[in-house]
């Protein structure tokens, strides 16, 4: 808004006051105001402010729909993470599944949970049958030290899981 008004002021000033000294000063002031306020106005993300943070979920709420009564076996999936993560905003991890595409079975879905995060479910995913291998790397946010669990679901419904404990120094949740 400021920017628009100042631009109008500027053009009006130029056309009316032409090249008098006062006219020039006024146009200079208008340009200055445009630069200053225009910039401030653009960097205020007013439409991106929320009154409340998003809702929190418990691990049970997120885990139960995926397990659906099944018990995951601690086998075949490998979750690699640092034991100590300095910055919770960027915690690297690697998920591998042994021989996922050998024989008749393949990995249908991969899930990742961080027990103590506000929303423990980090991602769900779907995989095609013929990828050759599952070895994913990505980075996540962690609020605090927590158990992390990676769960792989095979096409026949078998679940495999690996868990690891990560200690976080600085929270990734602001």
């Amino acid at each position: 808004m400021n920017w628009l008004m100042n631009t109008r002021l500027f053009t009006e000033t130029l056309s009316k006051a032409a090249l008098t000294r006062r006219g020039l000063l006024r146009s200079a002031a208008a340009i200055g105001a445009t630069l200053v306020f225009g910039k401030v106005a653009r960097s205020e993300p007013e439409d991106l402010i929320a009154d409340q943070p998003p809702p929190e979920y418990t691990l049970e709420e997120r885990l139960q729909p995926i397990l659906a009564g099944r018990e995951p076996r601690e086998d075949r999936v490998t979750l690699e993470m640092p034991a100590y993560a300095e910055d919770g905003a960027v915690v690297p991890l690697r998920i591998k599944v042994d021989d996922p595409f050998l024989g008749s079975g393949y990995v249908k879905s991969l899930y990742l949970f961080v027990d103590n995060n506000p929303d423990p479910l980090i991602f769900t995913s779907k995989l095609a049958p013929d990828l050759g291998s599952v070895d994913w790397k990505l980075k996540i946010r962690m609020r605090e030290s927590s158990m992390v669990r990676a769960i792989a679901e095979m096409d026949n419904g078998d679940l495999f899981m690996d868990t690891t404990e990560v200690e976080v120094s600085i929270s990734g949740c602001g």
Binding site: V90, D119, I122, F123, D135, I140, R141
Partner: peptide, 19 residues
Amino acid sequence: IITVSASAALSQNPYFTFM
């Protein structure tokens, strides 16, 4: 071939590596 549906807990500038 792959669909990842994430919550807000991916890091800034998310990267994703797969086979």
